[in-house]
Each structure stands twice: as C-alpha cells, then as structure tokens.
Amino acid sequence: MPRTLLAFAIGFGAALAAGWGAFPRVLYQKKVQPIEFRHKTHAAKSGTSACGDCHALRDDGGFGGIPATASCAGCHGEPMGATKAEAALVNDYVKPHRETPWLVYARQPANVRFSHAIHTRLAGLKCAECHGAQGETDAVKPYEVNRISGYSRDIWGRSMSRLRRAPHEGMKMTDCEDCHRKRGVEAGCLGCHQ
C-alpha cells in the first residue's frame, strides 16, 4: 500500500513538474527581433517621452503602428556607430527601403478590430495600461511565439495560470471583456468582431 501511494505521488509530482515547468518551455519558442531597438535611448535622444510621437494616430483615427523605416532614415541614413545592429539596420532596411519585419507582441487574429483612437482618446487609457512601460525599456524583449496558435505569448500573458497577473499582462478576449465590465462600457460582438 505505501508503495502504491508513493507511485501515485511520484506520478502526481512529475505531472506538476511537466505541466508547470517543461510545458511552457516546449509550447513557446523564443525569437529575436530582426534588429535591436532601445526605447529608452530613442526617447532620451529625441527628447520625447510620449508614445504617440512615434506610434501616432493618423488623421482618420487609424493607428499608425510601428513607424516605417523611412522614419529611421532621418537619423540612420548612415551608420551611427560601428555596431553590428546599426550596420544591419542601415544596410538591410534603410538603404534598400525595406520595411523591418518586426515581430509584434500585441498582434491579434484577423477577425478582431481594435481602435486605438477610441481607447486612448475617448476612454483616456494610457498606452502602458495594456502594453506595459515599453518606453522605459533598454532593449526589446525576446518574442515568444506559441507553437500551436502562432500568436505571441503576450496575448496569454507571462503567467501560465493567468493568476496574479500585472494589469497590463494578457490581451485575450476575456481581458477585453473584464476591462469593459469594470468600466461599465458595452461593446457588443460587433464592437470588436466585424
């Protein structure tokens, strides 16, 4: 009887270790961004701290997203230093006028419509409330892609259990619903899915 219990406990413990330890490592694959980028340095050198100065809303309310390579060319038309990353930016993207294939942490499925204008202008949300304090980071974090769904780990959030998450962690539909419920704002199905 004690041996049976021991075997059960070993199985139980092994499953816990696999589920909490090994499974996330197998599920997510780490990828590096095509070039290095430092939000903090750019903010300091350009003298700006507002996200919208680079990630701007267009006149029609659409979100401009990550600035185009042409925006980089103003300063990085020629290498500003001798680092490999600088050479890669200038030679691979700026000079050939190619867009940088950034891996977007917040990318949602194609059936989701999200208006940055409504959330930032009308609701007055700060960018960091959903994206975290990206503007203060010294390097872009690795992009972790879910091998099954193909989306970023940031959509689910760092915590596998989704318990005790920081407010900006997680961008699943339930997170949108929770926030809307808390603020008493109805969006309906067609508010996000068109």
């Binding site: 075997a7 070993i10 499953a15 909490w20």
Partner: peptide
C-alpha cells in the same frame, strides 16, 4: 504503474497543460 499513471493524470489537471492546450 497504474498508481503512477493515476497520479500523473490527477496531477496534470492541476497544471495549465490541458486547459492551455484546449485554448491553443
């Protein structure tokens, strides 16, 4: 062996593995 398997089955329920797999 059956107890080991039973323990693993019971243990896996308390991990994110089955639930996350369903979602993904």
């Amino acid at each position: 062996l059956l107890a080991l398997g039973g323990g693993a089955m019971a243990g896996v329920v308390f991990t994110p593995l089955p639930w996350k797999l369903l979602d993904d």
